[in-house]
Design a protein around this nucleic acid. Structure first.
Ligand SMILES: [Mn+2]
Ligand SMILES: [Mn+2]
Ligand SMILES: [Mn+2]
Ligand SMILES: [Mn+2]
Lengths: 219, 219
DNA sequence: ACAAATTTTTAGATTTGTCTAAATTTTTTA
DNA sequence: TAAAAAATTTAGACAAATCTAAAAATTTGT
């Protein structure tokens, strides 16, 4: 498989995991930042290789093989991200771009050894689960901070938007994975939240709150 | 620069460091396992980018920029090899292929951090020197074991042939970098050597002896 | 239900990197 | 030094991945 084919497979997987199971040419073109005609060409190729189900005008979805392939690439991507943060001291906003390159390195043994070096991590630096060697993958069933009722206490476990801009914003406000947060008040006007973050009181916009995954703590 | 361009640059550098300073199209084609016509095409492209000196029918050589580029790729290659051996437990015969892929990852910061993680190594697992961040590069002036006079004592510091077959042969015979060797006898018939390797006496063919770099120890 | 809008595909072009076969230039050798 | 041999380049083709513009299919709206 070429880098490009792998990137398409990954994009289809990501779009599919947002709910839609049949992906349109346009949606994929937008995700890949390319033109619909290029997508059509690539879908024909991936279809011939048995990685996607594709019928003209009918959209596209991953085959079992395609899904297995996607999980393997995502596994590599996320393990490399852990490596970059844990072993090389990169910050969580710097690693995605480099992992986009590293995920295409071909060596089963390499990724197994890396997994071992990192002590078999279950989550990447953004809180996303790392697929297992044999394709085991648990989607996290986490809630968004914006969905919690007032008074709830929860742990911050992941980010939905993992763009560098958002991550640096979180850094600036000392919001990190593992933080305990309690919802104090919800502003009706703009749906912003007043929360207690560890010891600190903080006002958070709806935009922020709907991009933070949390795990509720029962009291 | 594309992967292919980088591989050509590296190949030219390696051929040039064997003595010939102007590389012929055929020599490069053989090294790259491709056809001479493909080399001609690529040389025109690299020439336009200012990486090589190239005139039709006159062979090719690296410009200053080309040499800088080659050293940077070789630095990455060798640092990744050290990483694979030191941090992931690969053997020295397994790392070259993977490093061929990793050397093309683009991130200055990545390679600097990797250098630091590895504690700024000066040599790769095969005893080859690692170019510095700013292109400093000391060719090793080592002798070959086959060139030493009888009675000399030397340390094994590198391999000339670093093919997996040769490396595994050395493993099988417990010959490793750092070993102390003393030349006991040279067989006139086939130029094979009888050597004392640490405590052990060993017969070594001329083929082997001319692929081991050594550093003489003055007594 | 049918015209309009939207989506998707096709046709044809471009770039990179490769190939084969033919032409050209350089080197060798007689 | 001129023919033969070898090396190199050119010409033309192809696959991968992309693009633009045009055609075709599907969906939407009245
Ligand atoms: Mn990422
Ligand atoms: Mn990618
Ligand atoms: Mn190597
Ligand atoms: Mn390479």
């Amino acid at each position: 498989m070429t880098h490009s084919e792998e990137n398409y497979i990954k994009a289809i997987f990501h779009l599919a995991s947002t709910g839609i199971e049949v992906i349109s040419t346009n949606a994929l073109a937008e995700k890949m930042e390319t033109k619909p005609s290029s997508v059509t060409d690539m879908m024909r190729r991936l279809s011939e290789k048995g990685l996607v189900h594709y019928k003209k005008y009918q959209g596209v979805s991953l085959t079992t093989l395609g899904t297995k392939t996607a999980l393997s690439i995502i596994r590599k991507h996320r393990l490399w991200e852990v490596f970059l943060v844990e072993k090389l001291g990169f910050t969580w906003d710097e690693v995605h771009e480099i992992a986009e390159q590293l995920e295409h390195i071909k060596s089963e043994k390499l990724i197994d050894k890396l997994d071992e070096l990192l002590d078999f991590p279950k989550f990447d630096p953004h809180g996303d689960p790392i697929p297992g060697k044999n394709g085991e993958f648990m989607e996290h069933d986490n809630q968004l901070l914006s969905q919690l009722p007032i008074g709830s206490v929860a742990l911050c476990v992941g980010v939905k938007d993992s763009s560098a801009v958002f991550l640096r914003f979180l850094d600036k406000n000392s919001i990190a994975l593992g933080n305990k947060m309690k919802i104090l008040e919800k502003e009706e006007f703009d749906n912003s939240l007043r929360i207690l973050l560890d010891e600190r009181e903080l006002q958070i916009s709806q935009q922020i709150a709907s991009n933070l995954y949390v795990k509720k703590i029962e009291l």
